[in-house]
Nucleic acid binder design. Structure first.
Length: 442
RNA sequence: GUGACCGUGGUGUAGCAGUUAGCACAGGAGUCUGUGGAACUCUUAGCACGGGUGCAAAUCCCGUCGGUCACCCCA
């Protein structure tokens, strides 16, 4: 018996190989359930963005690879090992965007937006790609909503961006904490680099191998190290804030003063450096705030991050243009929203369900449905179902407030039954007056 | 990219060499040919993929693909 079974199995296998479609590593579907969260956040974000004078921009998902290597920085991890890049049929080196700012800046330059009244304020939303090993809070495809302000240098811009984030998180009632730091301008960074190297001159051997490399390539990133030893050593290292030039110092002070004025709590974090090279002066992140989370975890699940990038437009070939921006991670915000036990506001919908029995009624119902849609009634149907019981079950499940029942008799008498699902009371009304009757009852 | 653990219907799980692969929820149909939130009945659907060892594999071994976690780093 078993032998036959096996032979049979093998025959089937030979006949057709099993093809099971599967999504790529680190990429997943956003089902309606999660989409509801996205919609909720996006609606709030877009509304806020518009209030602050931002306009929507759509930029390509695919760009020349060099756009990212030049903007984000050759030695950053994003570029070194996380780029989703390949050669296209025309032999071009292209990459799926790992973040939004580079593309927006490219668009700004390419479309001559420096000729528009400054600053240019843009927002975008879409998928970003990083070729990483997936983990909680880290996927190969994820979604960001971002804001960029191009052509404005004042600290007030930085503050406004932070304020917008603050307002957003307040509005969705998410507990967050603002981390802020100032990275200075290239001059400050040069000076800081010099001082850091001096500081680490005799301590270099105590650092982990990784940090020794960092010291050469981008010393700032030593502060990112999770090694206890390195943290210990770097905790006594000079802080960037001490090396700021007058201009940068003033800028930072103004930002902080404004935050104080607005009563936005913040945490001065001299270890906050961010993973992209283009940042200057102000950088900030919003971390989830929840008991039981260590700072390390909080930083790993950073919900939004941004800062000033005064040199990026220039680096990418445009005119000298000060700018700043911020991006929100939708997946992470959704995740944290659930972790903090927050609930989506209940949809206050007045669903009306149209049920029908029999062929003639079905035909009529098809027509009636269209009219009700035009009358702006939140109408649902299940014309594909025949049994009234099944239709009522569905109506109940989706939370319909009223059910319209159309059958043989009703069609003949040009009437229709309105059933109130709460009370169970039903009335027969004239089908021509249905819209008014529904509105009366909602 | 490195390391650890893990993949049984849509979901959550039982089985840990011989089972018609069990259960719950969800889905569909019906009891009731025109009345929901209950009950009952029937029903749909699964051992991630490929190979190996065995008389016999969901079960043991290897590889692949995915997932989770840690490192790295980021949203």
């Amino acid at each position: 018996m078993a032998k036959i079974g096996r032979q049979k199995k093998k025959q089937i296998k030979v006949k057709k190989e099993k093809f099971i479609p599967q999504s790529l590593k680190g990429m997943r579907d956003i089902l309606p359930e999660e989409g509801k969260y996205f919609d909720y956040f996006l609606e709030k974000l877009e509304k806020l963005a518009k209030i602050y004078g931002f306009e929507k921009i759509e930029i390509p998902i695919l760009e020349e690879k060099s756009l990212f290597t030049r903007s984000i920085g050759q030695t950053t991890d994003i570029v070194e090992k996380e780029m989703f890049s390949f050669v296209d049929k025309g032999g071009r080196e292209v990459a799926l965007r790992p973040e939004g700012t580079a593309g927006v800046v490219r668009a700004y330059i390419e479309n001559g937006m420096q000729n528009l009244p400054q600053p240019v304020k843009l927002y975008y939303f879409g998928p970003m790609f990083r070729y990483e090993k997936p983990q909680a809070g880290r996927e190969r495809q994820f979604h960001q909503f971002g804001l960029e302000v191009l052509g404005a240098a004042g600290p007030i811009v930085d503050v406004q961006l932070i304020l917008l984030c603050w307002n957003f998180f307040q509005e969705i009632k998410l507990q967050t904490e603002l981390q802020i730091n100032c990275l200075g301008c290239p001059d400050c960074q040069k000076e800081y680099r010099r001082r850091l190297l001096e500081f680490f001159r005799y301590k270099k051997r105590l650092l982990c191998p990784n940090c020794r490399i960092r010291l050469e390539k981008s010393p700032l990133r030593i502060f990112d190290c999770k090694e206890k030893k390195c943290q210990e050593i770097s905790s006594t290292a000079p802080s960037i804030v001490d090396c700021l030039c007058e201009a940068c110092k003033n800028h930072f002070i103004k930002v902080l003063e404004n935050l104080d004025e607005l009563e936005i709590p913040y945490n001065l974090n001299s270890r906050l450096v961010r993973g992209l090279d283009y940042y200057t002066k102000t950088v900030f992140e919003f971390w989830p705030s929840r008991i039981g989370l260590s700072d390390e975890e909080k930083s790993r699940f950073s919900l939004a991050g941004g800062g000033r990038y005064d040199n990026l437009v220039k680096i990418l070939g445009g005119p000298v243009t000060p700018a700043a921006g911020v991006a929100f991670g939708l997946e992470r915000i959704t995740e944290e929203f659930k972790n903090q036990n927050l609930k989506l506001p209940k949809e206050r919908r007045n669903i009306v369900f149209l049920a029908q029995i029999g062929e003639t009624a079905k035909k009529k119902a098809l027509h009636l449905f269209e009219n009700l849609v035009k009358a702006k009634i939140d109408i649902k149907e299940a014309l594909a179902k025949d049994s009234l019981k099944a239709q009522l079950e569905l109506a109940n499940k989706i939370g319909a407030k009223l059910v319209l029942i159309l059958g043989q008799d009703e069609v003949a008498h040009k009437t229709i039954i309105i059933k109130d699902m709460r009370t169970g009371i039903q009335e027969v009304v004239n089908v021509d007056k249905i819209v008014e009757e529904i509105k009366k009852r909602l």
